[in-house]
Design a binder for these strands. Sequence first.
DNA 1: ACCATGACTCCAT
DNA 2: CATGGAGCCATGG
Length: 108
Amino acid sequence: MNKNFAEKVYKTVQKIPLGKVATYGQVAMLCGSSKAARAVGTALHRNPTPDVIACHRVVNRSGCLAKNFGFGGQESQKRLLELEGVLVDENYRVNLYNYQWDEKINKD
DNA sequence: ACCATGACTCCAT
DNA sequence: CATGGAGCCATGG
């Protein structure tokens, strides 16, 4: 395997702190390419280990999760985020202003 | 190696 | 804010 980019994506997603969310672009930038958001989506869509990769903590630039989300769809996504303390509106949208992961604050 | 697809993002209208 | 078009990256046939 060792799908370099995908591995990086998975690693970054696993680094997202509980109760926070990150955008595809954010993950892409941390992976080395600020424009590889699409590739990030592809990698997460494969999501080989949903038990380890918190794909539900990854949302698009609007704070909304992709409609093609697996694992039960946005329904399960919303529940998971709320369980982590993230408020999701009826439009399945989160307040990035308050919940977007800030790697600066979270950095080791 | 080429073409088509996709869990994206940005800009213009 | 909604819609459409263009750009970028990685994967699969």
